[in-house]
């Protein structure tokens, strides 16, 4: 199975995400933001970092990069997209996921490992954890405070599209939301970094299952 990792000039977790994909057995191609087409892939990863310095608004300039038209088309055709941290911010800015990521409630950047609950097993990304499982993943962001209007939040919860919730909300996110899925459950945006907890050397392998199972599920599909 094949994956692409999009590289914006200020991406800094592109290598990390590509490594995690590769360790899960995917073949990975990194795709430059100025490109207008994606190679033929099953999964597109949008990595963490500061895509365009986070100037204007996190992810806002990136969402208008040439490659994002192709990412949108890929998602609309039923393709899989995983956005981590800045990647989640880009996904909300492209409109592929609802809501927005605001500045953390405490106004400070936070880098720490946090406890999460997997809220749904109904996605290729979360199936192996099982709903209700508690895992720990690192977060590292200044703007991870998830916001959406109540109607949207009700819909996300009603349709089971909340993927992860914080057990102790670190950033003020509405309803403790740490990650959400698209209605077809193929686009996942999440603030925590599973790629930083994906091998023994990290001292935490809770993220490895996300990649391993996604690779398996997509290969079977």
């Amino acid at each position: 199975m094949k994956a692409a990792v999009i590289v914006f000039p200020g991406s800094n977790c592109d290598r990390d995400l590509a490594m995690a994909f590769e360790q899960a057995g995917m073949s990975v191609e990194r795709v430059w933001h100025k490109d207008t087409a994606l190679p033929k892939v099953d999964l597109v990863g949008i990595p963490g970092g500061f895509s365009f310095g986070d100037y204007l608004r996190c992810g806002a300039i990136a969402a208008n990069a040439p490659i994002c038209n192709a990412v949108r088309a890929h998602a609309e055709a039923g393709g899989y997209v995983l956005g981590v941290c800045n990647g989640f911010q880009v996904l909300t800015e492209t409109g592929l996921l609802p809501g927005a990521l605001l500045r953390n409630a405490g106004l400070k950047y936070i880098c720490r490992t946090v406890d999460l609950r997997v809220e749904t097993a109904d996605s290729a990304y979360t199936e192996s954890y099982g709903a209700g499982t508690e895992i720990a993943l690192p977060i590292a962001h200044h703007d991870g405070n998830y916001f959406a209007d109540d109607a949207t939040l009700d819909r996300l919860e009603g349709e089971g599209l909340v993927a992860f919730r914080y057990l102790q909300n670190p950033n003020g996110s509405a309803r403790d939301i740490a990650g959400i899925l698209s209605p077809n459950r193929r686009v996942l945006g999440m603030m925590p970094h599973p790629e930083r907890a994906s091998e023994a050397a990290h001292g935490n392998e809770d993220g490895a299952r996300l990649f391993a199972h996604t690779a398996e599920a997509l290969a079977a599909a």
Partner: peptide
């Protein structure tokens, strides 16, 4: 020092073996 070092990304590049807080930091 957590209030300070948690404001710094200590794990980007995914090679951090030991974050700050207890002696030397270690990177693979």
């Amino acid at each position: 020092r957590a209030w300070i070092y948690e404001q710094y990304d200590s794990q980007v590049m995914a090679d951090t073996v030991r974050i700050p807080g207890f002696g030397a930091g270690v990177i693979r």
